[in-house]
Amino acid sequence: MASEKEKDQYDYLFKFIIIGDAGAGKSCLLHQFIENRYKKGSSHTIGVEFGSKIIHVGGRNIKLQIWDTAGQERYRSVTRSYYRGAAGALIVYDITNRDSYNHLVNWLQDARTLARADTSIITVGNKCDMKDKRAVTFLEASRCAQENDILFLETSALTGEGVEDVFIKVARVILNKIEDGLIDPNTMVSGTHTGSQRIGSDSGGEAMSSKTCSC
């Protein structure tokens, strides 16, 4: 059970997933968000990585529990179990890599079918510091996001540009949905929780609970 002292740490717990093609910069994005610095010599993700951070949005403390998944197609069978119950999904592509942009549709479909139906999804065009190598224009991606009714931002995990905005933007949308009554945090199995009663993922078919929060 959540102890009283934990409750003051955050009001909501949102589960996020970061998906997208391999090499798009998902892990660096997460690292930049959590640590506020670029992760040099980072290794590719095998399976999943995890990070969490408390942000302050709309007068609420929100704890983000972020699952960063491996991008290679072959890992999808494993990473799919982490989609379940995610309240927010970041689909990351590399603006210098056209292919990673073209695969957005697949990722979007995965997120829609495997995460919650009302998952808030944002498309993130990463590596926007590499303007000279840009292969996907801002306008094009923005239009695509609009058509699919998802959010869109460009970021640079290297410089940190736009990284925090991405998470805040999604959290705000989810928070709005909660406040509008579109999402009832108490009825959710996972994804968002009030307090910190639960942590961890439901992967492996087992609900996990945490008594403490290290934050």
């Binding site: 095998i46 399976g47 999943v48 890992y75 961890g200 993922s201 992967s203 492996g204 996990m208 945490s210």
Partner: peptide
Amino acid sequence: FGIAPDMFLL
């Protein structure tokens, strides 16, 4: 503490 095996086995 909610660590599922596939979180580290992979």
